[in-house]
Protein backbone atom coordinates (compact mmCIF):
# COMPACT_ATOMS: atom_id res chain seq x y z
CA UNK A 1 0.00 0.00 0.00
CA UNK A 2 1.61 3.25 -1.12
CA UNK A 3 1.15 6.60 0.59
CA UNK A 4 -0.46 9.16 -1.74
CA UNK A 5 1.46 12.39 -2.26
CA UNK A 6 -0.13 15.58 -3.54
CA UNK A 7 1.95 18.41 -4.93
CA UNK A 8 0.59 21.90 -4.35
CA UNK A 9 2.16 24.45 -6.66
CA UNK A 10 1.28 27.95 -7.80
CA UNK A 11 2.80 31.33 -8.49
CA UNK A 12 4.01 33.65 -5.72
CA UNK A 13 1.05 35.02 -3.81
CA UNK A 14 -1.49 32.85 -5.61
CA UNK A 15 -2.81 31.39 -2.38
CA UNK A 16 -1.04 28.03 -1.94
CA UNK A 17 -0.42 28.43 1.76
CA UNK A 18 -3.91 29.75 2.49
CA UNK A 19 -5.37 26.82 0.57
CA UNK A 20 -3.24 24.25 2.42
CA UNK A 21 -4.01 25.81 5.79
CA UNK A 22 -7.74 25.78 5.07
CA UNK A 23 -7.69 22.24 3.75
CA UNK A 24 -5.75 20.92 6.72
CA UNK A 25 -8.34 22.36 9.04
CA UNK A 26 -10.92 20.19 7.25
CA UNK A 27 -11.97 17.21 9.38
CA UNK A 28 -11.79 14.82 6.43
CA UNK A 29 -8.12 15.59 5.92
CA UNK A 30 -6.70 14.48 9.23
CA UNK A 31 -3.56 12.39 9.25
CA UNK A 32 -1.76 14.50 6.67
CA UNK A 33 1.96 15.25 6.63
CA UNK A 34 3.03 18.47 4.94
CA UNK A 35 6.43 19.23 3.45
CA UNK A 36 6.97 22.92 2.86
CA UNK A 37 9.82 25.07 1.66
CA UNK A 38 9.15 27.86 4.13
CA UNK A 39 8.28 27.02 7.72
CA UNK A 40 6.05 29.20 9.78
CA UNK A 41 3.23 29.88 7.38
CA UNK A 42 1.35 26.59 7.56
CA UNK A 43 1.16 26.35 11.30
CA UNK A 44 -1.32 23.58 11.91
CA UNK A 45 -0.45 21.89 15.17
CA UNK A 46 -1.92 18.48 14.66
CA UNK A 47 -0.28 17.94 11.31
CA UNK A 48 3.32 17.03 10.79
CA UNK A 49 5.15 19.88 9.14
CA UNK A 50 8.73 19.61 8.04
CA UNK A 51 11.00 21.80 6.01
CA UNK A 52 13.27 20.81 3.17
CA UNK A 53 16.26 22.52 1.71
CA UNK A 54 16.37 22.31 -2.03
CA UNK A 55 19.02 19.99 -3.33
CA UNK A 56 18.62 18.63 -6.82
CA UNK A 57 20.46 15.77 -8.42
CA UNK A 58 20.82 15.98 -12.16
CA UNK A 59 20.90 12.56 -13.76
CA UNK A 60 23.78 12.05 -16.16
CA UNK A 61 21.46 11.58 -19.10
CA UNK A 62 18.82 13.95 -17.93
CA UNK A 63 17.50 17.37 -18.66
CA UNK A 64 16.08 19.64 -15.99
CA UNK A 65 12.70 17.92 -15.96
CA UNK A 66 14.33 14.57 -15.23
CA UNK A 67 16.27 15.75 -12.21
CA UNK A 68 15.58 14.02 -8.95
CA UNK A 69 15.03 16.17 -5.93
CA UNK A 70 17.40 14.49 -3.48
CA UNK A 71 16.19 16.69 -0.64
CA UNK A 72 12.60 15.69 -1.18
CA UNK A 73 13.44 12.00 -1.53
CA UNK A 74 15.43 12.09 1.71
CA UNK A 75 12.68 13.95 3.52
CA UNK A 76 9.96 11.60 2.34
CA UNK A 77 11.95 8.50 3.24
CA UNK A 78 12.72 9.93 6.67
CA UNK A 79 9.05 10.74 7.23
CA UNK A 80 7.95 7.24 6.23
CA UNK A 81 10.64 5.66 8.43
CA UNK A 82 9.65 7.77 11.42
CA UNK A 83 6.00 6.91 10.90
CA UNK A 84 6.78 3.21 10.69
CA UNK A 85 8.91 3.46 13.84
CA UNK A 86 6.07 5.21 15.67
CA UNK A 87 8.17 8.36 16.19
CA UNK A 88 5.60 10.65 14.56
CA UNK A 89 1.81 10.40 14.56
CA UNK A 90 0.48 8.15 11.81
CA UNK A 91 -0.43 9.88 8.54
CA UNK A 92 -2.26 8.63 5.47
CA UNK A 93 -1.19 11.21 2.92
CA UNK A 94 1.55 13.72 2.23
CA UNK A 95 1.22 17.22 0.79
CA UNK A 96 4.30 18.82 -0.75
CA UNK A 97 4.18 22.57 -1.24
CA UNK A 98 6.52 24.00 -3.86
CA UNK A 99 7.97 27.48 -4.01
CA UNK A 100 6.13 29.95 -6.21
CA UNK A 101 8.69 29.90 -8.98
CA UNK A 102 9.30 26.16 -8.86
CA UNK A 103 8.91 23.85 -11.81
CA UNK A 104 7.03 20.89 -10.25
CA UNK A 105 8.32 18.43 -12.85
CA UNK A 106 11.42 17.34 -10.87
CA UNK A 107 9.12 16.56 -7.94
CA UNK A 108 6.90 14.45 -10.20
CA UNK A 109 10.02 12.76 -11.54
CA UNK A 110 11.24 12.03 -8.01
CA UNK A 111 7.95 10.41 -7.00
CA UNK A 112 7.65 8.34 -10.18
CA UNK A 113 11.30 7.39 -10.76
CA UNK A 114 13.29 7.45 -7.52
CA UNK A 115 14.12 3.75 -7.03
CA UNK A 116 13.90 3.65 -3.25
CA UNK A 117 10.81 5.81 -3.06
CA UNK A 118 8.51 4.83 -5.86
CA UNK A 119 7.32 1.61 -4.25
CA UNK A 120 6.33 3.47 -1.09
CA UNK A 121 4.60 6.59 -2.41
CA UNK A 122 2.31 7.39 -5.32
CA UNK A 123 1.55 10.72 -6.91
CA UNK A 124 -2.08 11.52 -6.14
CA UNK A 125 -2.31 14.80 -8.05
CA UNK A 126 -0.53 17.97 -9.01
CA UNK A 127 -2.67 20.82 -7.67
CA UNK A 128 -1.92 24.30 -9.01
CA UNK A 129 -3.34 27.52 -7.63
CA UNK A 130 -4.07 30.40 -9.98
CA UNK A 131 -5.17 33.76 -8.64
CA UNK A 132 -8.49 35.03 -10.07
CA UNK A 133 -7.21 38.59 -9.89
CA UNK A 134 -4.06 38.07 -11.98
CA UNK A 135 -4.56 34.81 -13.88
CA UNK A 136 -1.51 33.10 -15.33
CA UNK A 137 1.68 35.05 -14.80
CA UNK A 138 4.80 34.24 -16.73
CA UNK A 139 6.30 30.97 -17.92
CA UNK A 140 6.51 29.39 -14.45
CA UNK A 141 2.82 29.89 -13.82
CA UNK A 142 1.95 28.63 -17.30
CA UNK A 143 3.93 25.45 -16.85
CA UNK A 144 2.51 24.79 -13.39
CA UNK A 145 -1.00 25.06 -14.85
CA UNK A 146 -0.15 22.97 -17.91
CA UNK A 147 0.96 19.94 -15.90
CA UNK A 148 -1.68 20.17 -13.15
CA UNK A 149 -4.36 17.56 -12.54
CA UNK A 150 -6.43 20.03 -10.53
CA UNK A 151 -6.47 23.78 -11.01
CA UNK A 152 -7.72 25.84 -8.09
CA UNK A 153 -8.78 29.37 -9.01
CA UNK A 154 -8.20 31.28 -5.78
CA UNK A 155 -9.39 34.62 -4.43
CA UNK A 156 -12.78 34.38 -6.13
CA UNK A 157 -14.05 36.41 -3.19
CA UNK A 158 -11.97 39.28 -4.58
CA UNK A 159 -12.48 38.87 -8.34
CA UNK A 160 -14.75 37.08 -10.81
CA UNK A 161 -13.16 33.68 -11.45
CA UNK A 162 -14.96 32.95 -14.73
CA UNK A 163 -12.41 34.48 -17.15
CA UNK A 164 -9.53 32.63 -15.50
CA UNK A 165 -11.53 29.38 -15.41
CA UNK A 166 -12.20 29.71 -19.15
CA UNK A 167 -8.53 30.44 -19.83
CA UNK A 168 -7.43 27.40 -17.82
CA UNK A 169 -9.94 25.13 -19.54
CA UNK A 170 -8.46 26.13 -22.87
CA UNK A 171 -4.89 25.67 -21.72
CA UNK A 172 -5.32 22.37 -19.89
CA UNK A 173 -8.45 20.44 -20.89
CA UNK A 174 -7.28 17.42 -18.85
CA UNK A 175 -7.47 19.23 -15.51
CA UNK A 176 -10.42 19.66 -13.21
CA UNK A 177 -10.90 23.35 -12.46
CA UNK A 178 -12.33 24.31 -9.07
CA UNK A 179 -12.80 27.67 -7.43
CA UNK A 180 -11.71 28.69 -3.94
CA UNK A 181 -13.06 31.63 -2.02
CA UNK A 182 -10.76 32.78 0.78
CA UNK A 183 -8.93 29.46 0.62
CA UNK A 184 -12.12 27.43 0.98
CA UNK A 185 -12.90 24.77 -1.59
CA UNK A 186 -14.12 21.18 -1.64
CA UNK A 187 -11.33 19.07 -0.17
CA UNK A 188 -12.82 15.91 -1.64
CA UNK A 189 -12.15 17.18 -5.15
CA UNK A 190 -8.49 17.78 -4.44
CA UNK A 191 -7.28 14.73 -2.53
CA UNK A 192 -7.51 10.94 -2.70
CA UNK A 193 -8.06 11.22 -6.44
CA UNK A 194 -6.27 7.99 -7.30
CA UNK A 195 -9.15 5.97 -5.88
CA UNK A 196 -11.64 7.65 -8.21
CA UNK A 197 -12.42 6.81 -11.82
CA UNK A 198 -10.22 8.90 -14.10
CA UNK A 199 -13.01 10.60 -15.97
CA UNK A 200 -11.55 14.03 -16.54
CA UNK A 201 -10.46 13.60 -20.13
CA UNK A 202 -13.77 12.05 -21.03
CA UNK A 203 -15.74 14.82 -19.42
CA UNK A 204 -13.96 17.54 -21.26
CA UNK A 205 -13.28 16.13 -24.66
CA UNK A 206 -16.17 16.64 -27.02
CA UNK A 207 -13.96 17.18 -30.02
CA UNK A 208 -13.88 14.49 -32.63
CA UNK A 209 -11.01 16.02 -34.52
CA UNK A 210 -7.74 17.63 -33.67
CA UNK A 211 -7.98 21.10 -32.29
CA UNK A 212 -5.32 23.42 -30.98
CA UNK A 213 -6.12 26.21 -28.57
CA UNK A 214 -3.32 28.66 -28.81
CA UNK A 215 -2.51 30.30 -25.54
CA UNK A 216 0.16 32.68 -24.35
CA UNK A 217 2.57 32.77 -27.26
CA UNK A 218 2.79 29.32 -28.69
CA UNK A 219 1.55 27.14 -25.81
CA UNK A 220 -1.69 25.32 -26.42
CA UNK A 221 -3.55 22.04 -26.16
CA UNK A 222 -4.10 19.61 -29.01
CA UNK A 223 -6.91 17.11 -28.53
CA UNK A 224 -6.76 14.04 -30.75
CA UNK A 225 -9.41 11.36 -31.01
CA UNK A 226 -9.02 8.08 -32.90
CA UNK A 227 -11.92 5.90 -34.03
CA UNK A 228 -9.85 2.73 -34.49
CA UNK A 229 -7.82 0.96 -31.79
CA UNK A 230 -4.13 1.86 -31.62
CA UNK A 231 -1.27 -0.60 -31.49
CA UNK A 232 0.27 -0.34 -28.04
CA UNK A 233 3.76 -1.40 -29.13
CA UNK A 234 3.77 1.24 -31.88
CA UNK A 235 2.45 3.87 -29.49
CA UNK A 236 5.22 3.12 -26.99
CA UNK A 237 7.90 3.45 -29.67
CA UNK A 238 6.31 6.67 -30.94
CA UNK A 239 5.83 8.33 -27.57
CA UNK A 240 9.35 7.57 -26.33
CA UNK A 241 10.75 8.99 -29.58
CA UNK A 242 8.50 12.06 -29.39
CA UNK A 243 9.38 12.80 -25.77
CA UNK A 244 13.07 12.34 -26.48
CA UNK A 245 12.95 14.69 -29.46
CA UNK A 246 10.49 17.24 -28.13
CA UNK A 247 10.21 16.65 -24.40
CA UNK A 248 11.09 20.26 -23.64
CA UNK A 249 8.11 21.42 -25.70
CA UNK A 250 5.59 18.69 -24.86
CA UNK A 251 4.63 19.66 -21.34
CA UNK A 252 1.89 17.11 -20.84
CA UNK A 253 0.33 14.07 -22.50
CA UNK A 254 -2.76 12.52 -20.99
CA UNK A 255 -5.57 10.38 -22.24
CA UNK A 256 -7.26 7.07 -22.79
CA UNK A 257 -5.96 4.65 -25.39
CA UNK A 258 -8.09 1.95 -26.97
CA UNK A 259 -5.66 -0.94 -27.40
CA UNK A 260 -8.38 -3.41 -28.32
CA UNK A 261 -8.96 -4.64 -24.76
CA UNK A 262 -12.15 -4.37 -22.69
CA UNK A 263 -11.02 -1.19 -20.98
CA UNK A 264 -8.69 1.60 -22.05
CA UNK A 265 -5.13 2.25 -21.09
CA UNK A 266 -4.62 5.46 -19.12
CA UNK A 267 -1.58 7.36 -20.33
CA UNK A 268 -0.10 10.20 -18.28
CA UNK A 269 3.20 11.95 -18.97
CA UNK A 270 4.74 15.17 -17.70
CA UNK A 271 7.51 16.13 -20.12
CA UNK A 272 9.90 13.15 -20.16
CA UNK A 273 8.38 11.66 -17.03
CA UNK A 274 5.88 8.96 -17.97
CA UNK A 275 3.74 7.38 -15.27
CA UNK A 276 3.46 3.60 -15.64
CA UNK A 277 0.44 3.20 -17.96
CA UNK A 278 -2.63 1.93 -16.16
CA UNK A 279 -4.95 -0.68 -17.65
CA UNK A 280 -8.54 0.10 -16.68
CA UNK A 281 -11.12 -2.68 -16.49
CA UNK A 282 -13.80 -0.64 -18.24
CA UNK A 283 -14.31 2.63 -20.07
CA UNK A 284 -15.59 5.46 -17.89
CA UNK A 285 -18.33 6.40 -20.39
CA UNK A 286 -19.89 5.38 -23.71
CA UNK A 287 -17.17 7.01 -25.77
CA UNK A 288 -14.79 4.19 -26.66
CA UNK A 289 -12.41 6.19 -28.81
CA UNK A 290 -8.78 6.77 -27.95
CA UNK A 291 -8.53 10.36 -26.75
CA UNK A 292 -5.17 12.00 -26.21
CA UNK A 293 -4.50 15.53 -25.05
CA UNK A 294 -1.12 17.13 -25.73
CA UNK A 295 -0.21 20.41 -24.03
CA UNK A 296 2.90 22.19 -25.19
CA UNK A 297 4.67 24.72 -27.32
CA UNK A 298 4.27 24.87 -31.07
CA UNK A 299 2.12 21.74 -31.34
CA UNK A 300 0.84 20.82 -34.77
CA UNK A 301 -2.16 18.58 -34.14
CA UNK A 302 -2.33 17.20 -37.68
CA UNK A 303 1.38 16.40 -37.70
CA UNK A 304 0.99 14.59 -34.36
CA UNK A 305 -1.98 12.63 -35.68
CA UNK A 306 -0.29 11.62 -38.95
CA UNK A 307 2.87 10.57 -37.14
CA UNK A 308 1.09 8.58 -34.46
CA UNK A 309 -1.04 6.81 -37.06
CA UNK A 310 2.07 5.92 -39.07
CA UNK A 311 3.61 4.28 -35.98
CA UNK A 312 0.55 2.82 -34.27
CA UNK A 313 -2.29 2.65 -36.80
CA UNK A 314 -3.64 -0.84 -37.36
Amino acid sequence: MTTPVSIVTGYLGSGKTTLIAELLAHPALGETAVIVNELGEVGIDHHIVSKIDERTVLLASGCLCCTLRGDLADELRALLDRRDAGEVPPFRRVVVETTGLADPTPIVSTLVNEPLLRHHVSLDAVIATVDAMHGLRGPESLKQAAIADVLVVTKTDLADGAPVVAELNRLNPTAEVVEASNGVTEASRLFDRASRAPDVVAARDDQSQAEVHVHDGDVGAAVLAFDEPLDWLGLGVWLTMLLHARGEDVLRVKGFVDVGADGPLLLNAVQHVVHPPLHLDAWPDDDRRSRLVFIGRGLDAEALRASLMAFAGR
Binding site: M241, H244, A245, R246, L304, S307, A310, F311
Partner: peptide, 22 residues
Amino acid sequence: AERLAGRPLDPLDAGLVEALAP
Protein backbone atom coordinates in the same frame (compact mmCIF):
# COMPACT_ATOMS: atom_id res chain seq x y z
CA ALA B 1 20.59 6.58 -31.95
CA GLU B 2 20.88 10.37 -31.91
CA ARG B 3 24.55 10.18 -31.00
CA LEU B 4 25.26 7.70 -33.80
CA ALA B 5 23.19 9.60 -36.37
CA GLY B 6 24.71 12.92 -35.33
CA ARG B 7 21.37 14.68 -35.60
CA PRO B 8 17.99 14.79 -33.88
CA LEU B 9 15.54 12.00 -34.66
CA ASP B 10 12.12 13.57 -34.98
CA PRO B 11 9.05 11.32 -35.22
CA LEU B 12 7.15 14.18 -36.89
CA ASP B 13 9.64 14.23 -39.78
CA ALA B 14 7.43 14.21 -42.88
CA GLY B 15 9.68 11.81 -44.79
CA LEU B 16 9.67 9.33 -41.91
CA VAL B 17 5.89 9.52 -41.56
CA GLU B 18 5.47 8.92 -45.27
CA ALA B 19 7.87 5.98 -45.22
CA LEU B 20 6.07 4.32 -42.30
CA ALA B 21 2.47 5.04 -43.28
CA PRO B 22 0.51 1.85 -43.93
